[in-house]
Design a protein around this nucleic acid. Structure first.
Length: 364
DNA sequence: TAGGCCATCTGGTCCT
DNA sequence: AGGACCAGATGGCCTA
């Protein structure tokens, strides 16, 4: 019967109403009160002549424990009250409700606590999986993580972009590539991704209007009127910044460059990354964690100011990669609103398997 | 202060 | 029956 009740969509509002009422018990005290609430539900139902709203939880909680609970009140709950009418009172259905004894309350409490613990670990597992995903999407910041939803969106776009590359066998257009990655992302995340990819704003602005994007990415990007320089501390490719900016020393370089630029083969012993390498964890082979774990806070900070990147083609002047990203840009006039703290941004250039495959395409 | 994001608790449902 | 999964509710934290 209960199954039928809950399979009937028309009854769900009632169910939700009651479950909502019985919910929100946080403390031990309130948890203990749950039983009382369920009992009250039943009583109310009796008064209303409608038991369909009784949560199955309430029933199972009460009825289910009747069988093994020896709390003294359990002699024959006779006939489930089927078709019993009491004057104008409605029929009673379902098992009789039992008073929540202290023992039952305790058992219920323990059961709930175990379920909560399981749920916590389940969510922790889910979050750690999400963290792993964050590390293999194009941009990764240790301190300012992408939100869950943005991580999933970016991952989806990334997969799609890579699939498209493999399918077409062509080197994608930078703008189209970025547009694809940023499709459906929030403005801050778009800034982050675009920043990671060192998209030149002018190219972006002009090309996005002209190009029938191969990837059919989003056609509207608001640009941030602030140039972010790729000024890697020790890389000549990224030292061209002449514009003072608090972030200028927080270099980041283009994933796109390292992936798609002709002749750019992955190098793992870049000036910024000289630590021992771990085997790739996945296709992107993120090996940053291992190092992060072993560095002092200062070293870690310094490490985060640098990039995990493979050498850019030396012929590519970074000055041409100045970035102008932003959300409401001219409207807000605040340049750092939607900008990642690039100093801790990690790029994923440690993706030898993928890069080799992609380079094979581009060098043929 | 509002809104976004997150962790946690909770009850319902499904599956083994 | 118990666990996994899910979604709603709630409160905390952070940022614009």
């Amino acid at each position: 019967m209960l199954t039928r009740l809950f399979s009937d969509p028309s009854l769900m509002p009632e169910v939700q109403k009651y479950s909502g009422w019985a919910g929100d018990s946080e403390s031990e005290d309130s948890k203990a009160k749950d039983g009382d609430q369920h009992l009250r539900l039943d009583e109310d139902d009796l008064e209303e002549g409608d038991q369909k709203g009784i949560s199955s939880r309430a029933h199972s909680e009460i009825a289910g424990e009747d069988e093994d609970e020896d709390d003294g009140d359990g002699d024959g709950d006779e006939d489930d009250g089927d078709d019993i009418t009491e004057g104008d009172m409605p029929k009673k259905r379902g098992p009789k409700k039992r008073e929540m004894t202290q023992a039952r309350i305790e058992r219920s409490k323990v059961r709930r606590q175990k379920a909560n613990a399981r749920e916590r670990t389940r969510m922790h597992d889910l979050n750690s999986a999400l963290d792993n995903l964050r590390k293999v999407v194009p941009c990764y910041s240790k301190t300012q993580k992408l939100s869950k939803i943005e991580t999933l969106r970016l991952a989806k776009n990334y997969i799609w972009a890579l699939s498209e590359i493999l399918r077409s066998g062509k080197r994608p257009d930078l703008v189209a590539y970025v547009q694809t990655l940023c499709k459906g992302l929030s403005q801050p995340t778009t800034n982050l991704v675009a920043g990671c990819l060192q998209l030149n704003s002018r190219n972006f602005l002009t090309e996005q209007c002209q190009e029938g994007s191969r990837f059919q990415g989003p056609s509207s990007f608001s640009m941030h009127p602030y140039p972010y320089q790729c000024s890697r501390l020790s890389s000549p490719q990224c030292q061209s910044s002449s514009t003072p900016h608090p972030l200028r020393t927080h270099g980041y370089c283009s994933t796109y460059d390292s992936v798609y630029a002709g002749g750019a083969s992955p190098e793992y012993n870049s000036p910024e990354y000289e630590g021992p390498l771990s085997p790739p964890v996945c296709i992107n082979g993120n090996f940053s964690l291992k190092q992060q774990d072993s560095v002092s806070p200062d070293a870690e900070k310094s490490y985060h100011y640098s990039m995990h990147y493979s050498a850019l083609p030396s012929s590519r002047p970074t000055a041409a990669h100045n970035l102008v990203f932003g959300s409401s840009g001219a409207r807000s006039g605040v340049h750092s609103d939607n900008v990642m703290p690039y100093h801790d941004m990690h790029l994923h250039h440690d993706r030898a398997p993928m890069y080799e495959e992609l380079n094979a395409f581009f060098h043929n």
